[in-house]
């Protein structure tokens, strides 16, 4: 219990530090955000206009006041307004985030369904034909960057075979079938690499566990091979696999950028790229803060999950 509270405390501190770092990073940028924003397109902006925008963005206040204000707003889930259209950043994020999460979740499920069984099977027959073929496929899958997979998928399945639309998004509530059809390719593009990661992790973990003394004990007890595999090998081997998978899903929070771009999937990462391109600071700060908080939260969740799976961690 104290273990849990301590982890929670550390996470809260980390979230605070992250928010501070993002704030400072934006404010230490060489050049003035207002000036940069207005000078898009190579024109030198009028000094009066810059000053007005600075006023509007609160940039004229001393740094510590700005910081206090920023933190105070964060505590109230207020991330300010987008510089492009004055819409609240929080609302925009809330609209986009579920779509990105859906993508990640679908890819994660695919990775578990493919990676864990094949990884276990490959380890059990180490050096055999299945192991060698599946390991080679996994190496290839790991080597193809996600945007390459995505682009090739678009070319083959959408342009040449015309199985599915090249990309886009339809809300589930409007047309579930179309929604899922559009989800398949982006989720698949992420899922391929992720499956390869899970495959490798599972294979290595199973090979490691097979050498453990308690597996020998189970054999000495006369337990059937299938039961040893399920109860003793996979059960323990899954712990590191689950950890790595969860952390991978976490990195995907920002890592779906490329796939969303390729498939025109209007998720959070796509919003981030357009915000970066437009130098929409409040939006960039908002998105990065939200994703980092989610990432820290996920790490916490992984630790808790690990505690549930492995009684030795609980103290």
């Amino acid at each position: 219990m104290t273990w849990l509270l301590r982890r929670l405390g550390i996470s809260l501190v980390l979230i605070w530090v992250v928010a501070t770092v993002v704030f400072l990073a934006i404010h230490m940028v060489p050049g003035d955000p207002a000036e940069l924003l207005l000078s898009q397109g190579g024109t030198t902006p009028d000094a009066g206009v810059v000053e007005e925008l600075r006023e509007q963005l609160g940039l004229t206040k001393p740094l510590h006041v700005q910081y206090g204000l920023h933190m105070w707003r964060l505590l109230h889930f207020d991330l300010g307004q987008s510089m492009q259209d004055d819409s609240p950043v929080v609302a925009e994020i809330a609209r986009r985030l579920p779509r990105t999460l859906e993508l990640i979740l679908a890819a994660g499920i695919m990775a578990v369904l493919i990676g864990i069984p094949t990884g276990t099977a490959a380890a059990m027959r180490r050096g055999g034909a299945f192991d060698r073929i599946s390991s080679a496929i996994a190496s290839l899958a790991l080597a193809v960057p996600v945007f390459v997979v995505g682009t090739l998928m678009v070319m083959v399945f959408a342009q040449m075979l015309r199985f599915v639309p090249a990309g886009g998004f339809t809300p589930f509530t409007r047309d579930p079938a179309q929604h899922l059809a559009l989800l398949a390719m982006p989720a698949g593009a992420i899922g391929i690499g992720l499956s390869a990661v899970v495959f490798r992790m599972t294979r290595a973990a199973v090979l490691d566990v097979m050498l453990r003394d308690y597996v020998r004990t189970a054999r000495a007890k006369g337990v059937t091979p299938n039961r040893i595999l399920v109860r003793h090998v996979v059960r323990t081997a899954l712990m590191p696999v689950v950890t790595i998978l969860a952390l991978q899903l976490g990195t995907l929070l920002g890592g779906t950028v490329l796939v969303e771009f390729v498939f025109n999937w209007p998720g959070l990462s796509g919003l981030l790229v357009s915000a970066v391109n437009a130098r929409d600071y409040p939006l960039v700060v908002g998105i990065i803060t939200v994703i980092s908080v989610l990432f820290v939260g996920l790490n916490l969740a992984v630790d808790v999950l690990y505690g549930l799976l492995d009684p030795r961690v609980r103290r």
Binding site: V18, T251, G254, S292
Partner: peptide, 16 residues
Amino acid sequence: LCFPPLLLALLVVTLL
């Protein structure tokens, strides 16, 4: 490590 790698990269690209 609190920032997913690609995100960290995007943050710096925004700045620089």
